[in-house]
Design a protein around this nucleic acid. Structure first.
Lengths: 238, 238
DNA sequence: CGAACAGTTCGGCCCCGGCCGAAACATCTG
DNA sequence: CAGATGTTTCGGCCGGGGCCGAACTGTTCG
């Protein structure tokens, strides 16, 4: 039976604590196995299996079989955007006390957000790109300048090739500092590239990104980051 | 009790057919009474009252009392964006057969989408603004050019005053033609202005906008619309 | 004041769906 | 092959929550 989805059906699927936890875990951008998702959700393997079947049937998740594992990922960037929008609503509701543990510190510094970077590193990069005139951000939307095209080409990213329907840059505040960073196609390409160069590395079982020694110098030199970019508050440049 | 919202709680609230219908009805941007929402949702007044109490408590809706009526509206643009994102996911899932009735024709031509215009009129406007060099759209995100600032100032909109965190332009496809139109702050200001000028008028009990005689000539002259902008397919300019 | 109307509260029905235990199936390993 | 590990299916329990009828509050109007 191939019935269409309604908005209520989609929201209902997300509107269960266990499933929402699974989806949130997948916002890291990596494909995860059913078992990993079960741990994230805090329910048994059987229950997880049922949830994943529903999410897959509704095409919120895509699945890839690999040996005795099944790897799940978000089915589309639309799904990621919907979850992100729900996060924004949840965060803007009645204030929730948000205790920050030690492991949050790493996440605040640098992490993945579906397919691009977030955290203070991403903010520093966005600031740098704007300051150097490579990208123009207007109210959360952004475009790449001609100078920026050259800059990104030098860096190994062909901006011309990114022309699709996905926005180049999007506001993506998450539960971190509330400022826009580079998301969309360009954000995804940037993350790809810096992972490729070994400037950051994924931390297993987490959305956190670890800054490597190569990254430490690479980011600073290439993007002319200020010396204090790791410091917490980080205001906008005047 | 002031507890915080989680993403699952928010999604669960939207994930009920009756409540989703109410929220969708409010995507028109106008405040509606409890009774009107009951009719939209197709449930009794008592049931509606319960739903509205929950939505209001979670700050998805804002309410204003006026005599013996209570007017409800979406509490924030974040909520509207979340619902919109869910619509996108629902639309991109397994294809739903979408029979178009005669009343849909008016909606396809011009309608409100929360706080801005949608439909073929909005697409023609977006095309015009891009063609004339007033706005640059890059992958669904957009910025206003210097020439555009002058143009909008002549039209009675101060773009400088719109600098907030909301994007100027956003992809907003809904169930109509799948192309971006002007949303965000600029889109809201545009809708305000053309309603103010009497170029379009709200159709009661509907999201549709009626094009007036003044609008017919006003839009054509001011935005240099092509003669065939009302025609269905409407491809992108080369 | 009393009738009409908008909206809410209460109580009870009922069904949907999340949960787990048990067991089956699938896949890799030794 | 046997055993370990990952995943699914089945069956049954049970709680939450959507629904409406009835009754109550509050507002408008004649």
């Amino acid at each position: 039976m191939v019935s269409g989805n309604t908005i209520a059906e989609v929201a209902r699927l997300i509107g269960d604590a266990a499933r929402a936890n699974m989806l949130a875990a997948l916002m890291g951008g990596q494909a995860l196995t059913a078992g990993e998702l079960a741990r994230h959700a805090g329910v048994s393997a059987q229950t997880t299996s049922g949830h994943l079947a529903k999410l897959t049937a509704a095409q919120l998740l895509a699945v890839e079989k690999q040996g005795r594992h099944r790897y799940f990922r978000l089915a589309s960037s639309e799904v990621a955007q919907a979850i992100h929008a729900l996060m924004s609503v949840a965060a803007s509701g009645p204030k929730r006390h948000h205790p920050i543990g030690p492991r949050d510190a790493a996440l605040r510094l640098a992490r993945t957000c579906y397919d691009h970077m977030a955290g203070r590193l991403a903010l520093a990069l966005a600031d740098s790109l704007v300051r150097e005139g490579h990208v123009i951000l207007a109210d959360g939307a952004g475009i790449v300048t001609d100078a920026g095209r050259l800059f990104f080409r030098d860096f190994g990213i062909e901006v011309e090739g990114l022309r699709t329907r996905r926005p180049l840059c999007r506001t993506c505040l998450d539960w971190s500092e509330r400022r826009p960073h580079i998301a969309g196609q360009l954000g995804a390409a940037l993350l790809d590239k810096v992972l490729d160069r070994g400037w950051v590395a994924r931390v297993p079982e987490s959305r956190a990104l670890r800054l490597t020694r190569a990254g430490e110098s690479g980011f600073t030199a290439t993007f002319r980051l200020p010396l204090d970019w790791k410091d917490p508050p980080l205001r906008l440049a005047p």
